[in-house]
Each structure stands twice: as C-alpha cells, then as structure tokens.
Amino acid sequence: MAPRTTPTARQQRLGAELRKLREKAGLTAREAGALLGGNQARISNIETGRIPVSADRIRTLACNYDCQDKKLIDALASMPSGRTRHWWEEYRGVLPPGMLDLAELEHYAVELRTAQTSSIPGLLQTVAHARVVFEQSFPPLPPPEIEHRVSHRIKRQAVLFRDSPLPYTAIIHEAALRMQFGGTEVTRAQLAHIMEISERENVTVLVIPFTAGAFPGSGQTFSYARGSIPQLDTVHLDQSHGVVFLDAEAQLLKYRGIMDRVQAVSLSADSSRDFLRSILRNL
C-alpha cells in the first residue's frame, strides 16, 4: 500500500503516540521494525501517519514496547477509522486540510471548551454571520470558496445535535458579542441563536463582561478538546495563518490552567443569558 501523502492530524497524532511508546521502551525504529517482522521504514511511516495501522497491530506494538497502560492501549486501538468516510472528506482538496482536521477533532472529542475574546465561536455561528466572517478574509476569497467554508462551518455544528451530543462550553467576551458583523439584523439574529442554543443541556455559554478586566489568555482564541483519556487531549489555536494543534504534556497542562482561569472570571450561565438579553434589548 502506497504511503499517504497528506495524513490527517488524527492519523499523525496516533503515530506520534506510538513513537512515544517506542522511545519510552528505549527501542530504535530499526529494532521496532525487526520485532514487527518489518523494517525501519515501515515503523517510520506508521509513526508519521503515512500508512494505516490496524487495532491489532497497535496492540502488538504496545506489547513489543512493554506498555501496560490498558486504558491508553484501548484508546489508541480505537483511533484507526478503517474505511469509514466522514462528511468532511467531501471538502478534501477544496478547503485547507486544517479545517478538515478541526472537524475531525470535534467529531471524536469527548468534551470541548472554547474561549473567544473577539469572535463568536464557529459552532455557534449562524449562516449569515459566518458568511460575513469569511467575506472579510484577506486576501479576499472567491465567492465559491466562501460558500464552501460557510457550509463546512455549519456542518461542524452537527456534533451539538447528534444522538450523543458533544458537551460544549463556550466562553465569549463581551467585545465579541457587541461587534455588529453584518449589521444590526445579522447581529440580533446571531445573539438570539446563541440564546436559544444555550438552553440545550449539552451547551453552556458563559460571558466575560468588560468589567472583568484583565485575565490570562485574553489575547488568544483557543479551544481545549478532551480525548477519551487525558493523554489524548488536544489544544486548538485559531491563527490567521491556519489551524494549530498542541498536544505536548506541558502545553496541555498550561492551557487547562488558562481555560480554568478564564472560566473563573466569567459570569454564571444564568447571568450570562441575562447579559445576552440586555445586549439584545439595546440593539
């Protein structure tokens, strides 16, 4: 089987976790390949996500690496998707790979928390608001790509409405709520949509008012996706040059702390809904 040319972030993450197990066992890629009945190149391709690896092969590798963490092994063995084709694959070659990786991350996450200081979270945006956001891209995007990006963003929101909906906490600064993207009517509809979706059991919307003052992470837009086990958590940073994922232990610890501090300065869920109502009344 020919190696993949563009493995997804999830495939790369699986390979990286297998590499950590190998290095912890003190084995070189050549030694690991010999134990597997293959060669160094095969191990290298598995660890970069360039070739698929089955659940059985993952368990064999874990055994060869003397890994006795059953929860970790089970979690890694559940990561290969086989021949399953998910909805975001229809955008491959049309949108940047990072946007597809984000949809994949959200699909497999156990819980998601996001902190936004200057924009409405993508999972809460209306079609009209999302279109305005992409129309402001620089350099300007051609109209067909704007529509592709809008439809992709709206389809991502299905994780909040599926049979087992994603537990989602959105922390939004007052500045983002008061920016009138698309004018008064678009803004009013956007805030009403946030109010409505915040009533769902799996969705918590928290507002940071201007009066909260300074707080850690105030200059960043980031999300924390909890995996099936803590080792598989991921931080997503929304950068102007594209999507960035972080998963080093120190990075996860840092952003968990920042997210907790951001949430601590937010209003309660009930007070946040009251705050949203007051902004809506004054539009």
Rank of each mutant, 00 (worst) to 15 (best):
N39K: 08
S78A: 15
Q231E: 13
T169A: 04
T169N: 05
L283I: 14
C63M: 07
S119I: 15
L14I: 11
E90I: 12
T8P: 00
E201H: 07
P165R: 09
A158W: 13
S44K: 02
S78I: 01
A175P: 00
K24Y: 09
R13T: 05
G26F: 12
L76R: 01
I51M: 05
D270C: 01
T126I: 15
Q136R: 15
L141W: 11
S137C: 12
L72T: 03
R281H: 10
A248I: 09
I197P: 03
G82F: 10
Y168T: 07
T204I: 11
T169E: 04
E201L: 13
G183H: 07
W88R: 02
S54N: 02
H236S: 11
P230S: 06
Q40R: 07
S151H: 08
A192V: 07
V159N: 07
V203N: 00
T187W: 11
F161M: 09
A175T: 13
S137F: 15
L191Q: 10
V94G: 00
S81L: 15
A34Q: 12
F181L: 14
E106C: 03
P230I: 12
V235A: 07
P216I: 05
M179I: 14
Y108H: 13
T187L: 13
R188L: 13
V265G: 05
Q40G: 03
S198E: 02
P140G: 09
W87Q: 05
R92Y: 03
T211H: 07
G98S: 13
T117Q: 10
V150S: 02
S78N: 13
L105W: 01
P97Q: 15
V243F: 03
L141E: 04
A264E: 03
I279K: 07
K254Q: 12
F245P: 00
V132C: 05
Q116P: 00
H107M: 06
E135F: 11
K254W: 11
D163W: 04
N39H: 15
A16V: 05
Q136V: 04
E31I: 06
I58L: 01
P165M: 04
L21R: 12
Q157H: 08
